[in-house]
Amino acid sequence: MLEVQNLSIEYTTEDGVLKAVDDVSFNLQRGESLGIVGESGCGKTTVAKALLRLLPENGAISGGRVLFHGENLVGKSPDHMRRIRHSKIALVSQSAMNSLNPVYTVGHQIREGILAHSNIGRHAAHARCVEVFGMVGLEEKRLSSYPHQLSGGMKQRAIIAMALSLEPDIIVADEPTTALDVVVQGRILQRIRAIQRQISTSMIFITHDISVVSEICERIIVMYGGKIMEQADSASFFRAPYHPYSLGLQNAFPSITDITGEELVSIPGTPPNLMQEQPGCRFQERCPFATSQCRSRTPPLVKVKSNHHAACWYTDQVNDFRTRARNRDTWEAVRTRIEQQETPQQ
């Protein structure tokens, strides 16, 4: 249904050109839910915005194609995109709950969207509003509430209802629950999962929280420095990741189910500066297993088993890597290496 091919995106800034997304390819089947995870600055939100062609003015798609039902969205006119947005591909963004207009009721705002994008009448539109509110677990009477009368969780659900109202093929959700409390987040994730199964919409779920992906996505893409590091079925990924970055993340993440009491180990160093053209693997600077090959040549995304790909030159050594990655000293060595490289500033 959606095919992203070799997508590259650049931002022009005062200090030069920033390559935010570099040669990213993936596809999305009908009814599938895909999670894109990564830390701040890895390009995950930029990918989402590019799919809908909502990049800020200084951002541009510098290469690649976005095929939606076989039709390339890159280069389509703003008018054409406006018709696709919301009705075919809907976005639920992080700050969406603050994007509701305070002077109209939420019901009015959802109805306007439906009327603008389809040719059904007011009554049918209202019925549709009631239906989608039911799906997200809001009472019908809430349609006549103004945004300030709703809590953060309810507003976020109203936004999800709005996204659902035109039965889009794809919902792109960018950190839709980050601003919410745990209990509310838990409930909304449950809802999203249920709705997605019920109406078989496809979903792209963008988050920094890898455990959220584990909860609701069938497939996962791990991004780092604008590139895909690993792409896999969620179950396969969470049982046994391949990329050293993913192995590092696994050690860094506290879990409420942990009973080993082992010390968490973080990944030393900081993400790469995307302003500088960098040969080789984006992660090599922080990777405990990096070799000269990693520094000079960019590893391609290779298949490691069915539905599981990783961008690393040494996927055949993953067993050894996994053992070593669990050891704190492995990562401490990286810290020492980085500290030595940094020239003292005075």
């Binding site: 994730l189 929280d209 584990s214 909860e215 879990s255």
Partner: peptide
């Protein structure tokens, strides 16, 4: 309720 709301990165959980 609080504990059961925490997402867990374990497909077997």
């Amino acid at each position: 309720v609080l504990v059961s709301s925490v997402p867990v990165a374990d497909p077997d959980y």
